[in-house]
């Protein structure tokens, strides 16, 4: 078993599975978020559910965080190995001749996403944890919508989020499809899978960006 964990193929598999899990999470996150644009009440009730259901809070949330951590730690570990595997650098290396920019720069897009996650935690997760478990405020199931919209008032945050979503799209453009290849799925359905992943990779981040822009442009005026 330890041999398996050390093998490059197993590590790739871990990357693929954790990545797919995060992709799935993104979809779920998006579905909740889009309600903040079309049905604020639904947004409030779903957010309340996610924030107070013990299954979500104490099982799914740690799994999600673990997924993020594993994906990043493994990604950086593999990247370090990969750099070492080259040894002496090429004087001339024409990566663009045979591979896309996104596939060659997952570290950059991943790094930006990691920074974004830090910001996102600071913006939402930390206040939420503080609110619920440290300051132990009584629960108000209608607070979520206003809090969210409020966050997008400053232009800098909206812009940072948009940049992150662009990089997320790039990351997904390669990563989502790539995970199928790693899991050994490369057959007659591959072009359909490719198309689906490409659409997903663009639609979901684009949607997140639109939500951010919408809230920025439509602040709550009391």
């Amino acid at each position: 078993m330890s041999a398996l964990i050390k093998s490059s193929l197993a590590r790739k598999m871990v990357m693929a599975l954790s990545g797919l899990f995060l992709v799935f999470f993104l979809g779920q996150h998006f579905v909740i978020n889009i309600t903040s644009v079309i049905a604020p009440d639904t947004f409030n009730s779903w957010s309340h559910f996610m924030g107070h259901n013990p299954l979500v809070q104490f099982l799914l949330q740690p799994i999600l965080i673990a997924g993020v951590v594993i994906h990043f730690v493994m990604g950086f570990t593999l990247e370090l190995q990969n750099r070492a595997a080259r040894g002496v650098k090429y004087v001339s290396y024409k990566g663009s001749a045979n591979a896309s920019w996104v596939s060659r720069n997952m570290l950059i897009s991943g790094g930006v996403i990691l920074a974004f996650i830090a910001l996102h935690f600071y913006d939402f997760w930390l206040p939420e944890i503080t609110h619920k478990y440290i300051e132990s405020h009584p629960e108000d199931p209608t607070r979520y919508y206003a809090e969210t919209v409020h966050k997008f008032e400053p232009i800098w945050r909206t812009v940072l989020y948009i940049i992150a979503f662009v990089l997320l799209a790039l990351h997904l453009l390669h990563g989502f499809a790539s995970s199928f290849q790693t899991m050994g799925i490369n057959n007659k359905y591959s072009s359909a899978i490719q198309t689906f992943t490409k659409i997903y990779a663009i639609v979901i981040p684009f949607g997140f960006a639109l939500i951010a822009i919408y809230h920025h442009l439509n602040p709550i005026t009391h």
């Binding site: 041999a3 050390k6 093998s7 490059s8 193929l9 590590r11 790739k12 593999l78 190995q81 990969n82 070492a84 595997a85 080259r86 990566g95 001749a97 045979n98 591979a99 896309s100 596939s103 060659r104 997952m106 390669h174 790539s178 290849q181 790693t182």
Partner: peptide, 20 residues
């Protein structure tokens, strides 16, 4: 695969450069 790893080759990130 074990030998391939022992030799110190890097990990595949599916860039597709090899195929091209």
């Amino acid at each position: 695969v074990r030998q391939m790893d022992l030799e110190g080759f890097g990990n595949c990130t599916n860039t597709g450069a090899c195929e091209i």
